[in-house]
Computed example of a mutant assay.
Amino acid sequence: MPEIVQLLASPVHRLAGRPADGPAPAPPDELVGEIQLRAGLGVVGDRYFAKPAHRNASVTIIARESLPPGVDLVQVRRNILTAGLSVDDLIGAVLTLDSGDGPVRLRVNRPANPCAWMDVTIGPGAFRALRRRGGVRCTPLDDGVLRLGPVRATVDREAVGA
């Protein structure tokens, strides 16, 4: 069964400016045990919540299998880290996740392409290594809660207009 390994809701942009200047410090409470999602708005408390420019990319998901050992959401700045779920193959589908509090549908809109910051936060070569494996950008279609642990996941490739 797939699992949600980590969740991140960060109110701050850590990767701003030039990578050579280094990232801003991470807030101590950005890795959380649960996140609240709002339809069309994103993750409550996250830096992209309700931002018009990010409505189609307000929730980001990446698979643990895409990352080097020991790398987590603090380094890649995605919201949801899964295990056992190949998210990069889901562009155009609706992914439904249920971690025990009811289903939350996410429209998978486009890849979450890596940037040059990955060579700084993870290590040299990470930017290239994460191409086509950097996760996906989604829009939540429902209000709901996602928690760490096992998750029921279903994929609807026909629900493009949902």
Rank of each mutant, 00 (worst) to 15 (best):
I122W: 03
V136F: 05
N79L: 07
L7G: 01
E158Q: 14
L67G: 05
W117D: 02
D89C: 05
G144T: 02
V87E: 09
R132Q: 15
L90C: 03
V145I: 15
V87L: 08
T154H: 10
P150V: 13
D142E: 07
L130W: 02
I80P: 04
I35P: 00
A20D: 12
P150N: 05
D98A: 07
A39I: 00
D119P: 00
I122T: 00
A126F: 04
V136A: 01
T96F: 04
P114R: 01
V32F: 00
F127Y: 15
G125C: 08
N109G: 07
V5W: 04
R133F: 06
Y48S: 06
C138P: 00
L67E: 09
L31N: 06
T96A: 12
V160L: 13
E65H: 10
A16Y: 09
W117R: 01
I80H: 08
R131E: 13
V76S: 01
Q36S: 15
L81G: 06
A24H: 13
N56S: 12
P25G: 09
M118T: 02
G123K: 10
P140S: 04
Q36L: 15
M118Q: 04
V151A: 04
R18I: 03
Q6W: 11
P25K: 07
R110Y: 00
G149W: 09
L31P: 00
R110E: 13
E158M: 11
S10E: 03
A53Y: 13
A126R: 01
D46G: 06
L15I: 03
R18V: 05
A20I: 13
V155R: 04
L41W: 03
R147Q: 10
A126P: 01
S86F: 09
L97C: 03
R55L: 15
P124G: 12
L15H: 09
L37R: 02
R132C: 10
P114V: 00
Q75N: 01
A93C: 13
R107N: 04
V5F: 03
P25L: 06
A53D: 14
D72G: 15
L90T: 11
P103F: 04
L31Q: 07
S58Q: 09
G33R: 12
V76P: 00
R64Q: 15
D142W: 07
F127C: 12
P124R: 15
P124Y: 14
G33T: 14
V104C: 11
I62Y: 05
T139G: 00
P140L: 05
D21I: 11
R128H: 12
P114E: 02
D156A: 12
R147N: 05
A93S: 14
L85I: 08
D72K: 06
R110V: 08
V87I: 10
R131N: 13
R128Y: 09
T60H: 13
P27E: 14
